[in-house]
Nucleic acid binder design. Structure first.
Length: 899
DNA sequence: GAACTGGAATAACGC
DNA sequence: CGGCGTTATTCCAGT
């Protein structure tokens, strides 16, 4: 790890600044993380996790830093200048040096660090992030702070909470009002980022500076990095930095500092005690300084974080401040924030979109293509909707008068569990054309845009303030712990989260992710993209026509069905007939080719892709051949499709094969999409009511997610990781929504079950982190969430990513094939797919009766793999809901059947 | 003049 | 090691 970092640093080194940042993060993580990354289990979480609060995390990071130091010691330092302060606070030594950085490099690094990296590293990141966040505040801050507030005073505060921005002012209003500020902030922030970055040119190299990378972790913020660039404009004055960087920087700085300390220590041999750092950190005062709104964000972290924060605060302050500036600041935030921080679920945690009466829906999906901008470029504007407008997100079922905060970050769109994208960061857009106020915050090195969700707007937000920043692959890949590769990893999803504090002190965290968005210029212009398909499965006889909707289809586009063995070799490949007559650049009508074996007794999952030429292929899409006599079940009726004019076929949004892990068949309408994307299935019903009970269950239940044929199982596997320790505590916490409300339906039975099981969550993921701290025990709220698990989303699940799997995954699509996936991960219990699910579900009733007991969690997962299974599952849930323990039986049955 | 864009040149990569 | 096709980044210029 260290080395890696170093490397980055070197790059950065040049720019010294970077160093610091990266170091921090990674370092921190690195140590722990690294491991963790590597081994998720590890502890990071554990340590971190646990400590999450504080200490550990911090330390670790720092430690890593140390390493980092070795490599790049000085340089980094320099850059970090801005950071310095921070550093100083903290540590003294290293930090000191580091801090200085100011420049671009620094930010860059930061950016590197922060954002992406964290994400990517995700495992680390996530974990790390968590920690980091803590550290950084940023990360958490947003959430945390906001949250916290909620915690504090549940709702009322929550509002505040919600509005991170709010901190400043009245939540609801403020946010908006703040806009100005926020904008500023944003700008600052952004600029900061940008600013930091030097201008384009140097950037790269500098960026490389190792620093950033390292930081990555910490800084996540780095995202800022980008900005830096973007901002090229901005001069890197210290202030700017701070501000700009602030977030990143701040975090980055902090990270860096930490890193320095740590790394430095390490490297240096100093071996500065983490604590020491903290101590330094403790400077709470500094923090206080920050008071600024940002502070809140910063705060968020767990206890540990706090400390870190403190130490870092300085940075943050600056950084944040900047950002915050816009917003009203509030020193107070600081204190509060912390709580929140800790509490919020890590960004790589999989959260449901519905829980109890609440349902977070993406009413208007973003366009499938959006050219992201580099730091060296100016903004390329906000992500738009196909209609020309902008994406719209709405929270259903929320009747309180308190405004909430909608969080937005850029997530991955591969086949693994949803997690922050290491190579892309959300970019705050401000200006006359922007009607929605927003505020940038860093959470675990991932830039998070906080948008007010106001009752007066019916808890609906038009997302016209979010652009996407591309971080240089080289910068991110150098980060420690980062296992993902940037090349050809250009698809992302917009991930929205909202945390609703409950009267009981718990917080329900919901998440909705958009359909995949292709961010590269070239890909967007040339690669065929399949967004939906009217049928997910059909008898082996084939012959049926399905409608594929997407983009960049050509008259001579070919559709190839492929079946691969788990080892990757092709078992079967055939070109499907494409109706040229009905050709449209956004739609293709294809005749399902007969499967190679007409006698299959169980569903067979294959893939297909649209090919426009040699290397112009779409992502793999899934398709399942059913035994000839099996009734075809449509997964969902997709609204979209119809619109498409499809022949009545329902389309699944599977979207990219990858992307969704889950794919649950999902969803209802538009909302569905979102859901689709996300791990969790959308609530059956879109709206609130929907969520309400039944629906909720489905979604909520992790299981459901799993349903999707996909691989998710894999995700599960990830869980294994969690298994370890860390999570424990968290477990409870973890399940966010779920936990939180016992009563709440949200958790579908499954969820509940899981929880009950206690450890279960862990299984999932381990979430590492979770730590947290929810004082209130709010675990529910946030914390829980996070997990990576994809699929499901079960709250519990954590993201697997990092784990080894992740590494693999990403680049290689091994997972393409579901099968593959499963193997990989799966951990969970999942059995492979039940080939006969069909039958199974058909018999639900029966099954129910049988009752066996089972490991629900596992079960759920397993069976779910099949698409249709989803339906079944949903039914089961419902049943369960109504019939308490029967559920178990059901599950068992389900399980049995599946088998 | 700044924020967007659309294009495209140039640098990197990987085979 | 050079060539080539891709993909990633940086630049430019028009709106």
């Amino acid at each position: 790890m260290g080395n890696p970092c170093l490397a980055s640093q070197y790059h950065n080194m040049q720019s010294s600044p970077v160093i610091s940042m990266s170091s921090c993060h990674q370092t921190g993580y690195g140590l722990h993380e690294d491991n963790s990354h590597h081994n998720p289990t590890q502890g990071y979480y554990v340590p971190h996790g646990m400590r999450p609060n504080g200490a550990p995390a911090l330390e670790s990071p720092r430690i890593e830093i140390t390493t980092y130091h070795h490599q790049y010691p000085k340089e980094e330092v320099e850059e970090s200048g801005s950071l310095d302060h921070t550093v100083h606070h903290k540590r003294g030594v290293n930090s000191i040096v580091t801090l200085t950085l100011p420049n671009a490099d620094g930010y860059r690094d930061p950016s590197c660090l922060s954002p992406a990296s964290s994400a990517s590293s995700r495992s680390c990141n996530s974990d790390a992030s968590s920690y980091e966040s803590g550290f950084y505040n940023y990360d958490n801050s947003p959430q945390n702070s906001p949250w916290q507030s909620p915690c504090v005073s549940p709702k009322g505060s929550s509002s505040l909470l919600s509005c991170p921005h709010a901190p400043l002012g009245p939540p609801s209003t403020s946010p908006r009002q703040s806009p100005s500020t926020s904008p500023q902030i944003g700008s600052q922030a952004e600029e900061g980022w940008a600013g930091q970055g030097h201008s384009g040119a140097g950037k790269r190299k500098y960026s490389f500076n190792g620093a950033p990378y390292r930081q990555p972790s910490y800084t996540p913020n780095q995202s800022p990095t980008p900005s830096p660039r973007g901002s090229p404009r901005v001069s890197v004055t210290d202030e700017n930095w701070q501000t700009n960087t602030n977030q990143y920087t701040n975090s980055a700085i902090v990270a860096a500092i930490n890193a320095l300390t740590t790394d430095g220590v390490v490297d240096m041999g100093e071996g500065i005690p983490i604590k020491a750092r903290k101590t330094n950190l403790d400077h709470s005062p500094t923090v206080s300084l920050k008071t600024e709104p940002e502070g809140e964000e910063m705060v968020r972290g767990s206890e540990l974080l706090q400390e870190d924060y403190i130490s870092r605060l300085p940075f943050k302050k600056e950084g944040y401040c900047a950002g915050f500036l816009d917003v009203p600041q509030n020193p107070y935030s600081w204190s509060k924030p912390k709580p929140y921080l800790s509490s919020l679920p890590a960004l790589d945690w999989q959260l449901p979109s519905c829980s109890g009466p609440y349902s977070l829906q993406i009413e208007v999906q973003p366009k499938s293509h959006h050219r992201a901008h580099y730091e060296t470029e100016g903004s390329r504007g906000a992500v738009k909707a196909p209609s020309g407008g902008h994406p719209v997100v709405q929270l259903y079922g929320y009747m309180e008068s308190e405004p909430l905060t909608l969080q937005l970050f850029i997530g991955t769109a591969d086949d693994r569990l949803l997690r922050p994208h290491a190579f892309y960061q959300v970019h705050r857009i401000t200006g006359k054309t922007v009607s929605t106020a927003s505020h940038e915050a860093l959470q675990s090195s991932t830039k998070v845009l906080e948008i007010p969700l106001l009752p007066e707007n019916n808890m609906r937000a038009i997302i016209d303030c979010a652009g996407i920043l591309k971080l240089r692959n080289s910068d991110i890949e150098l980060r420690k712990g980062e296992t993902d590769i940037g090349r050809k990893n250009t698809r992302v999803r917009m991930v929205f989260r909202v945390h609703i504090s409950q009267p009981n002190g718990r917080t329900i965290s919901l998440q909705a992710s958009s359909n995949p968005i292709e961010c590269s210029q070239r890909s967007a212009q040339e690669l065929p993209l399949v967004e939906k398909q009217s049928l997910e499965s059909y008898p082996a006889t084939g012959g049926k026509k399905i409608l594929l909707s997407g983009h960049n289809f050509l008259p001579d586009s070919k559709v190839v069905f492929v079946e691969k063995a788990q080892d990757g070799h092709h078992l079967w490949e055939t070109e499907a007939k494409v109706e040229k007559d009905s050709f449209k650049s956004t739609g293709l009508v294809v005749e399902i080719p007969p499967y190679r074996n007409q006698r299959i007794s169980s569903p067979v999952q294959v893939n297909f892709y649209v090919c426009n030429g040699k290397r112009k292929r779409s992502q793999y899409q899934r398709f399942t051949y059913l035994p000839p006599n099996v009734p075809v079940i449509k997964t969902e009726p997709t609204d979209d499709y119809e619109s498409l004019g499809a022949q009545g076929l329902s389309v699944h949004s599977k979207s990219f094969y990858y992307g969704q892990p889950r794919l649950a068949p999902v969803e209802p309408a538009g909302g569905a999409d979102s859901s689709l994307v996300r791990g969790y299935p959308p609530c059956p019903a879109r709206h609130v009511s929907l969520c309400g009970v039944p629906a909720s269950s489905p979604e909520s239940s992790p299981t459901l997610h799993d349903l999707s044929p996909v691989t998710y199982p894999v995700c599960l596997s990830a869980s294994p990781t969690h298994a370890h320790a860390g999570p424990l505590a968290s477990a409870a916490h973890e399940a966010p929504a779920f936990l939180a409300q016992p009563s709440s339906p949200d958790r579908s039975p499954l969820v509940g079950l899981l929880h009950s099981q206690g450890g279960s969550p862990h299984h999932l993921g381990g979430p590492r982190a979770y730590q947290p701290v929810y004082p209130n025990g709010s675990p529910s709220s946030s914390s829980p969430g996070s997990n990576p698990s994809t699929p499901g989303e079960s709250p519990f699940v954590q993201a697997p990513p990092y784990s080894p799997a992740r590494s693999q995954a990403r680049s290689s699509p091994r997972s393409l094939l579901p099968e593959d996936a499963s193997p990989t991960s799966l951990a969970v219990t999942v059995k492979q797919e039940p080939q006969e699910l069909d039958q199974m579900y058909l018999d639900d009733g029966e099954c129910l009766e049988q009752g066996v007991s089972p490991d629900l969690s596992a079960l759920a997962v397993d069976r779910l793999t099949k698409p249709w299974s989803f339906s079944v599952v949903a039914m089961l849930f419902l049943v369960l809901k109504t019939a308490g323990r029967k559920t178990e039986n059901l599950f068992r049955m389900f399980h049995l059947q599946c088998r």
